[in-house]
Amino acid sequence: GATAVSEWTEYKTADGKTYYYNNRTLESTFEKPQELK
């Protein structure tokens, strides 16, 4: 079976905060997504 690849990509803001962006739902969040835990 195919492994589900996380759609979340980790980015940093200009002031160094980490956030996560989902390229399928176009959602962004500062909290670590469930799929990455």
Rank of each mutant, 00 (worst) to 15 (best):
residue 16 G to C: 06
residue 7 E to G: 05
residue 17 K to S: 07
residue 5 V to N: 12
residue 10 E to V: 10
residue 11 Y to W: 08
residue 35 E to T: 07
residue 11 Y to D: 03
residue 14 A to W: 09
residue 3 T to P: 12
residue 32 K to E: 08
residue 27 E to P: 00
residue 36 L to Y: 12
residue 7 E to A: 06
residue 12 K to D: 03
residue 25 T to K: 01
residue 11 Y to I: 12
residue 17 K to G: 04
residue 28 S to I: 15
residue 33 P to E: 01
residue 35 E to M: 06
residue 23 N to G: 05
residue 19 Y to R: 04
residue 15 D to S: 09
residue 14 A to Q: 10
residue 26 L to S: 14
residue 22 N to R: 00
residue 3 T to D: 13
residue 29 T to G: 03
residue 13 T to P: 01
residue 28 S to V: 15
residue 1 G to Q: 13
residue 32 K to N: 05
residue 22 N to S: 03
residue 35 E to W: 05
residue 4 A to Q: 13
residue 18 T to Y: 08
residue 13 T to F: 03
residue 15 D to R: 02
residue 4 A to W: 11
residue 21 Y to A: 03
residue 29 T to K: 05
residue 26 L to A: 14
residue 35 E to P: 08
residue 21 Y to N: 02
residue 16 G to W: 00
residue 11 Y to N: 05
residue 19 Y to D: 01
residue 9 T to Y: 09
residue 15 D to I: 03
residue 18 T to L: 10
residue 33 P to I: 01
residue 21 Y to T: 09
residue 3 T to L: 13
residue 25 T to V: 02
residue 21 Y to W: 10
residue 19 Y to G: 05
residue 11 Y to G: 07
residue 9 T to E: 11
residue 28 S to K: 13
residue 24 R to W: 15
residue 2 A to H: 13
residue 20 Y to V: 00
residue 7 E to I: 07
residue 10 E to Q: 09
residue 20 Y to N: 00
residue 2 A to T: 13
residue 6 S to G: 11
residue 5 V to M: 13
residue 11 Y to F: 12
residue 22 N to V: 01
residue 8 W to S: 00
residue 14 A to P: 13
residue 17 K to W: 06
residue 20 Y to F: 06
residue 36 L to V: 06
residue 34 Q to G: 10
residue 21 Y to S: 04
residue 3 T to R: 01
residue 7 E to D: 14
residue 23 N to I: 09
residue 37 K to I: 15
residue 35 E to L: 06
residue 26 L to Y: 14
residue 22 N to T: 01
residue 21 Y to E: 06
residue 28 S to M: 15
residue 10 E to A: 09
residue 35 E to R: 03
residue 29 T to Q: 08
residue 28 S to Y: 15
residue 21 Y to H: 09
residue 33 P to G: 02
residue 10 E to F: 04
residue 18 T to F: 07
residue 27 E to D: 04
residue 5 V to D: 12
residue 14 A to F: 05
residue 12 K to Q: 12
residue 11 Y to V: 11
residue 35 E to S: 10
residue 30 F to R: 03
residue 18 T to D: 04
residue 34 Q to R: 08
residue 29 T to A: 05
residue 13 T to G: 08
residue 2 A to N: 14
residue 22 N to K: 00
residue 9 T to P: 00
residue 2 A to S: 12
residue 12 K to A: 07
residue 35 E to Q: 08
residue 17 K to I: 14
residue 7 E to N: 05
residue 37 K to L: 15
residue 10 E to H: 03
residue 14 A to H: 11
residue 5 V to G: 13
residue 10 E to I: 11
residue 14 A to R: 08
residue 21 Y to M: 08
residue 15 D to P: 00
residue 18 T to G: 02
residue 6 S to A: 11
residue 16 G to Q: 03
residue 9 T to D: 05
residue 19 Y to E: 04
residue 6 S to H: 11
residue 24 R to M: 15
residue 1 G to N: 14
residue 1 G to P: 13
residue 6 S to F: 08
residue 7 E to C: 06
residue 6 S to Q: 11
residue 36 L to S: 05
residue 18 T to E: 04
residue 7 E to L: 06
residue 14 A to Y: 03
residue 31 E to H: 08
residue 20 Y to P: 01
residue 8 W to V: 01
residue 28 S to N: 05
residue 7 E to Y: 07
residue 22 N to L: 00
residue 25 T to H: 02
residue 24 R to V: 15
residue 31 E to V: 12
residue 20 Y to S: 00
residue 30 F to M: 07
residue 23 N to K: 09
residue 4 A to N: 13
residue 17 K to E: 10
residue 34 Q to I: 12
residue 37 K to Y: 14
residue 8 W to Q: 00
residue 14 A to S: 11
residue 15 D to L: 05
residue 36 L to M: 09
residue 16 G to K: 01
residue 36 L to H: 08
residue 4 A to S: 14
residue 10 E to W: 07
residue 10 E to P: 04
residue 9 T to K: 09
residue 28 S to T: 15
residue 24 R to G: 09
residue 12 K to P: 03
residue 5 V to S: 14
residue 22 N to P: 01
residue 9 T to R: 10
residue 3 T to E: 13
residue 1 G to I: 14
residue 13 T to V: 03
residue 21 Y to Q: 08
residue 29 T to S: 08
residue 10 E to T: 10
residue 16 G to L: 03
residue 12 K to G: 03
residue 33 P to M: 01
residue 25 T to Q: 01
residue 5 V to A: 14
residue 30 F to Y: 09
residue 15 D to K: 04
residue 3 T to M: 13
residue 3 T to I: 12
residue 31 E to D: 11
residue 9 T to L: 09
residue 9 T to I: 12
residue 29 T to H: 04
residue 16 G to S: 02
residue 37 K to D: 13
residue 29 T to L: 05
residue 32 K to P: 06
residue 26 L to D: 13
residue 11 Y to E: 07
residue 34 Q to D: 15
residue 1 G to W: 15
residue 27 E to H: 05
residue 13 T to L: 06
residue 1 G to K: 04
residue 17 K to P: 01
residue 14 A to I: 10
residue 23 N to D: 10
residue 24 R to N: 14
residue 34 Q to H: 11
residue 15 D to W: 05
residue 15 D to H: 05
residue 6 S to L: 09
residue 25 T to E: 03
residue 25 T to W: 02
residue 1 G to Y: 12
residue 8 W to E: 00
residue 4 A to L: 13
residue 15 D to Y: 05
residue 13 T to W: 03
residue 30 F to V: 07
residue 22 N to I: 00
residue 9 T to G: 07
residue 25 T to S: 03
residue 29 T to V: 09
residue 32 K to D: 04
residue 23 N to L: 06
residue 17 K to H: 07
residue 28 S to F: 15
residue 22 N to F: 00
